[in-house]
Design a protein around this nucleic acid. Structure first.
Lengths: 121, 121
DNA sequence: TCCATATTTCAAAGGTAGTTGAACAATGCG
DNA sequence: CGCATTGTTCAACTACCTTTGAAATATGGA
C-alpha cells in the first residue's frame, strides 16, 4: 500500500460525518447497511450521505452492491488494516520490547475481515 | 476520547508530509528526534516542518521537549492507540467470530507505549 | 406506461487548509 | 556582549473541500 492511498483513506475519515458512517458500518459487520438506513440512523440528508459514501468508497474503505432499489454499503476491513499497518510500520525500530498497551487495543480491533460485499469493479 | 479529537488526529495525519513525519517518529521510538534531524531525513524546509509539527502536536499525536538548542519530538503511542480504538469500536457488533486478519496487523502494531518524552503542558 | 421509492449528480457559494518567503525568538559558545 | 545555530511565527496567496438545493437516474409495482 502506497503513501498516497493511505493519505486518501485518512482524508476520507478526517470528517465527522464520514467517520460516523464508517464506524456505523464497522459495527454493522460484513453484511453492511443500505444507504437509506444509514441516513435514518445518522439523521443526514440523502444527497449529503451519498457524497460522503462516494468519498469513502473512492478511498477503498467501503464497498457497495445493489439490492433491488437499495444500495448496500459495507466496511472493507482489509483496507482498514492496511492503513493501520502503514501507520505502525517498523514501530520502535523493530524493537517491540517495551510495548504493551497497543496490544490491547489491537486485540479489540481484531474483527471481521472475511469476504465483505465488495464492489463490482 | 471524543469524536472531534479523533477527527483532528486523522486530519493531522491526512497529509503526505505529516504522515512522513509521524511514521519517522513512530520508527524512531520513545526517544524521538530533534526537529533538525527530521528536516534532514525528510528533506523539507524548516519552516514547513515547524508548521506540520505544530499540527501534529496540537492533535496530540506527538510531544516535544527542549534539549539545548534542539527541540526533540516523539510520537505519542497512547494517543495513536486511542484513535485506532475509536475507529474499531464495537467492530462487527461485538461478534468477532469470523475475524482474523486484523489480529495479525494488530500484533505488529503492538509497540512502545510507555513514557514518551511528553510536552511540558 | 405511469408513479413512487431510493439514491445519485450537478453547480454555486462559502469556508478552511496548504505554501512560500521573510522576519522573529531562543540557546550556546568564544 | 556579539554571533552563529536551531526553530518558530507571520502574512499573503492559492487551492481544495464542504454545503445546499434542485434536478436527474434507476428500480419495482400497479
Amino acid at each position: 500500500m502506497d503513501r498516497q492511498s493511505v493519505v486518501t483513506s485518512l482524508s476520507a475519515l478526517a470528517h465527522g460525518g464520514r467517520l460516523d458512517i464508517f464506524r456505523l458500518l464497522v459495527k454493522a459487520g460484513p453484511d453492511g447497511l443500505p444507504a437509506g438506513e444509514i441516513a435514518r440512523s445518522l439523521q443526514v440528508m440523502p444527497n449529503a450521505l451519498s457524497a460522503n459514501l462516494k468519498v469513502l468508497s473512492h478511498a477503498g474503505l467501503i464497498g457497495s452492491r445493489r439490492d433491488g432499489r437499495s444500495i448496500i454499503y459495507a466496511a472493507d476491513y482489509s483496507a482498514m488494516s492496511n492503513v493501520l499497518g502503514f501507520l505502525m510500520e517498523d514501530c520502535c525500530g523493530g524493537d517491540a520490547a517495551i510495548c504493551a498497551p497497543l496490544v490491547d487495543i489491537a486485540a479489540r480491533s481484531a474483527c471481521c475481515a472475511a469476504d465483505a460485499p465488495n464492489m463490482p469493479a
